[in-house]
Design a protein around this nucleic acid. Structure first.
Lengths: 145, 145
DNA sequence: TCAGGTATATGACTACATCACATAGATGAA
DNA sequence: TTCATCTATGTGATGTAGTCATATACCTGA
């Protein structure tokens, strides 16, 4: 289990070892999607942004500035490696590849994201139940009973 | 549509009016769950924390400090109202109720959370597909092809 | 008396993302 | 030839949400 293995707390890891609280980096989608995009093939950043959009069915647009920052952080942590492409034409491009450590972290992220998906599903259901109760009640003054 | 109606950007509202980027408050679970908890009944903060845990099937533990801050912010925005309970015994308790504006925002949150749930589901599927490709490949050196 | 549960609250901090902006090469149109 | 646009990488300032530590105070029971 990669908890604590890569220099900082990641996704589900809380200070007391529990995994019940969220936030503080536990919602991150860009990091796991970067790793997933690089798991299928090495890519440069700009291409990776398009890959992520495709992976999410166009639901998620990635900020390029944040993406490049994430890539350099992941490289500092050893989860990806990069090299400048030698090209005779076009702007300089840095090509990123995932490492074995990156794959391990990605698989850990996968479990966390599935848990997040379930958590959001439960939240939606809870709201549906609560709003159904409100709509069934008799209220005109903008306050619940 | 409550976009921009309540003094600040909320969930899916981006600067350019698009809804494709996430983060910056767009993952929030505590705010909608607070509103959902108050939609079914007026409660005080401590009780609300337990309600939220129950609503999420124990998956989400709420930080009380953050919860009280959220409640006072929502009150400043007019989405909830509160009053001190007059009790002859026990610690002082502030009882919160949701307003009509709060219900409107909650219903907006519901759609956003459903979209987030779908987005996380897509991310999980994308990771599964990417990792399957990696595991099928022939690698020993810790780098993908 | 003292631990532990109930109840509210503030301060310092972190993670993640947004937005604006800078740089630079390539391409194609007016 | 200038100008817009796309490709490509990057920095700086800012904001939101949540974490963690800590403080106060009341109450119950051992």
């Amino acid at each position: 289990m990669p908890n604590g293995m890569y220099g900082r707390r990641r996704c589900c890891e809380a200070a007391d070892g529990t995994q019940r609280q969220v936030g503080r980096g536990r919602w991150a989608l860009v990091e796991p999607l970067v790793l997933a995009g690089l798991a299928s093939s090495s890519r440069h950043g700009y291409e990776l942004a398009q890959t992520i959009e495709e992976m999410t069915g166009g639901l998620l647009g990635v900020d390029l500035g944040g993406l490049y920052r994430t890539l350099r952080r992941l490289e500092a942590e050893g989860l990806v490696v990069s090299e400048w492409e030698q090209a005779d034409a076009g702007p300089q491009r840095r090509r990123y590849s995932i490492t074995a450590d990156g794959v391990a972290v990605l698989q850990h992220w996968r479990e966390h994201l599935a848990a997040s998906r379930d958590l959001f599903a439960r939240a939606v259901d809870a709201i549906d139940a609560a709003v159904a109760g409100v709509c069934g009640a008799d209220r005109q003054d903008g306050r619940s009973s």
